[in-house]
């Protein structure tokens, strides 16, 4: 199936910015994504090892934010469910729904999976330290001119450019490099 073209990035960015402003105007908070990991991990640990969860300050902190309710009953979790459905609808209308692993021809699928797993873990750790990821800290932080959010944004992109060269074989090259 031929996938259709992507939207104009400036127009999409403008709409995304309007969505972010509307969210701040109505709810007083911005967008986010990595906070969902926190809710899911805490719920899982609570279910599997409740005693352990009760002894770890991290899970305690998450639970105390949702007194009497599951950590899954959180704004960010509902937002993320919407995000997945919204992306699915977009993929549907633009004919991009297929199960596949996307990687350059010279990279074995398994390597791509391990790299993705490792990258995800980096984001899990980094986003907890920085109190947000590209969405919650960098983009939403920039919108409200948060020094912390903008610092995180610079750190993410700065570090990515620094390590882009050593990891280039994951994405470009192959035979010609």
């Amino acid at each position: 199936m031929e996938s259709s073209r992507y939207a104009n990035p400036y127009q999409t960015g403008f709409l995304l910015g309007l969505l972010l402003v509307a969210t701040i105007y109505v709810t007083g908070r911005g967008l986010g994504a990595s906070g969902v990991f926190k809710s899911v991990v805490t719920t899982t640990v609570e279910a599997v090892a409740p005693e352990h969860a009760a002894n770890q300050p991290f899970y305690q902190a998450v639970v105390s934010k949702h007194p009497g309710a599951s950590p899954l009953k959180a704004w960010l979790v509902f937002e993320a469910i919407g995000l997945v459905i919204g992306a699915f609808i977009s993929g549907l209308v633009s004919h991009r729904l297929t199960f596949k692993t996307e990687c350059p021809p010279h990279v074995p699928t398994k390597v791509r999976w391990i790299a993705a797993l490792f990258g995800g873990a980096c984001f899990g750790i980094g986003a907890m330290l920085a109190r947000g990821c590209t969405s919650g800290a960098a983009l939403s932080g920039m919108a409200v001119l948060s020094v912390g959010g903008i610092t995180t944004m610079i750190a993410i992109f700065g570090s990515a450019y620094l390590v882009a060269y050593p990891f280039r074989r994951l994405w470009i090259g192959g035979k010609q490099s």
Partner: peptide, 11 residues
């Protein structure tokens, strides 16, 4: 945290 995420982004 941002620096760790940068590595995560590229990898």
């Amino acid at each position: 945290g941002g620096a760790i995420m940068g590595v995560g982004f590229v990898v």
